[in-house]
Amino acid sequence: MTKSELIEHLIDRHPELSVKDVELAVKAMLDHMTESLANGDRIEIRGFGSFSLHFRAPRIGRNPKTGDSVSLTAKYVPHFKPGKELREQVNESIEQGL
């Protein structure tokens, strides 16, 4: 499912809202989530999962082409941990033969 398919589904599900409102809502929600992580905040969605930042220590890397070593600075990467409900539903899809 792509973002535009997600928007289509939400439009079908919310006939009380205009197409424009649904499009803006999806953009606003993703921007809000991005902003929170960019501020170093966590996201906690019960039943779905949580997003947080994981720290990556600085390290010496190598340019795979030349073999030269390059020092890589410390960084943060977004991490998602699925919630119990999502984990169970996804795992059950195996048994349903999907």
């Binding site: 499912m1 997600l6 939400l10 779905f48 539903q89 996804v90 059950e92 899809s93 999907l98």
Partner: peptide, 9 residues
């Protein structure tokens, strides 16, 4: 919607 999609593999 996201969860349903993932639950449908």
């Amino acid at each position: 919607e996201i969860r349903e999609s993932l639950a449908a593999n």
